[in-house]
Write a protein that binds this DNA or RNA. Structure first.
Lengths: 235, 235
DNA sequence: CGCTGTTGGATACTGCCACTATCCATACTT
DNA sequence: AAGTATGGATAGTGGCAGTATCCAACAGCG
């Protein structure tokens, strides 16, 4: 397969493919025939993964490169590749500054881990948990208090999510397939969940307040979402 | 409160505040005293909301403006303001093109709605559901099949999430508070959930495979995440 | 063999976006 | 009166994901 065909089959312009090659997102070891190159199915798969990360997952090119490089690193065992690839994936910067908001957030999150019974999260500085602290701290800093009580439902739901999501990763039979599944599940599936959340809000609102409930004007004391509001809210 | 104080209390530079005023993200009706202006607490609250949307929620300025404008529109009842504000919030473009991937995605999502027992989603074109179709179609197009079976766990979890999230919105006593809560819950809380997902993966992996399970090299047939992999994966 | 058209590679440019910097005349403060 | 802050306007910055252009070296064809 030549560049033009790879472009056509992937829907990515040749210029962009060249850009990805330059940036090290695609294996550049395409068998060169003098000054020509040949691409295989694995290039197509890789290109799809890169596009999923960048376009769907909104991952910066540099981060995608790190993840891809880790997934490719032949010096790592399969297990290590899997972990390194996922670990490179996007995260907020670590909560470096030690301001009041960060401390408050860390306190809430620590208590949350306790209440969820998640152990082993404090053994070493955890980038994943650090990202969470950063998110919570940002909200706190803006005056939206995120205490453990607010966080707890999210924690329980994240746990359910993890149960559901580890299955498809395990189902992959090949090493490359597992690494790819881990990466795809970690990032490009995020919009799938988030875009289901709003219809779910609508549905739950209907369940609580009933479709046929009459409108009341002024400041509501009871249902927040009226029929009309729901209609406007979610179309 | 003058510009400098608003800047100091919000942590936003005066230049950026001016920019937001220009862009219509802040009420420009600040009581002008000749050529001076006075800002009140509501400007500070608004500024925090804007920052939460833009910095945490990664919402484009233009979209934030729409949501804010709807939340402010005095010609709308409280209910309508609430809905309009939330509705304006970020979404993928509607699935305009009618290609194979989009049709497949729509089919999967329709079946999903059926299986979840979510009704009333087809009465009118729903932006919220359209966004979801777009997300799924993008994955399908890249060769990651998202059939109803894959989607179902996400749907159930989104439903749980909605149950947990409608409570805090209802708890708000003032109209403005409810509108703000709706907006904040819809977007700036997204990172809170997403950043809890990875620690949850780690935790679930530990639960399944045990912390002390020995490493095996080569392609694993059983547990995907070994101890080392987990350590690398989540730090 | 020579011709046409494509290839990979290098370099420079574009467009978008969220700010940011600079000026300025005015008006408030002391 | 002197010094400073303000709002408004305009233009510039920096980052990032691509895109456009050129080029010499081929490959396939008659």
């Amino acid at each position: 397969m030549r560049l033009a065909e790879l472009s056509e089959r992937s829907g990515v312009s040749t210029a962009t493919i060249k850009y990805y090659l330059r940036e090290g997102l695609l294996q550049p070891d395409h068998r060169v025939t003098a000054t020509q190159a040949e691409y295989g199915e694995e290039h197509l798969r890789r290109l799809r993964l890169v596009r999923a990360l960048i376009r769907i997952g909104k991952v910066p090119v540099a981060v995608a490169r790190e993840a891809i490089a880790a997934a490719d690193d032949p010096s790592l065992s399969h297990h290590l590749r899997l972990g390194a690839a996922t670990r490179a994936l996007p995260r907020e910067p670590e909560p470096a500054e030690d301001d009041a908001a960060t401390r408050a957030a860390r306190g809430s999150v620590d208590a949350l881990m306790e209440q969820l019974g998640w152990h082993g999260m404090h053994d070493e500085p955890s980038p994943a948990l650090g990202t969470h602290v950063t998110s919570v701290a940002a909200l706190v800093r803006l005056g939206y208090p995120c205490d453990t009580a607010h966080l707890l439902p999210y924690g329980r739901i994240a746990a359910d999510l993890a149960v559901a999501e580890l299955d498809p990763m395990e189902e992959q039979s090949t090493a490359a397939g597992q690494v790819e599944a881990a990466v795809v599940l970690t990032v490009p599936y995020e919009p799938v969940l988030l875009s289901l959340r709003r219809p779910a809000h609508l549905q739950e609102s209907a369940r609580r307040f009933g479709i046929h409930r009459p409108l009341s004007d002024g400041v509501p004391s009871g249902p927040v979402l009226s029929v009309m509001a729901r209609a406007r809210l979610y179309g």
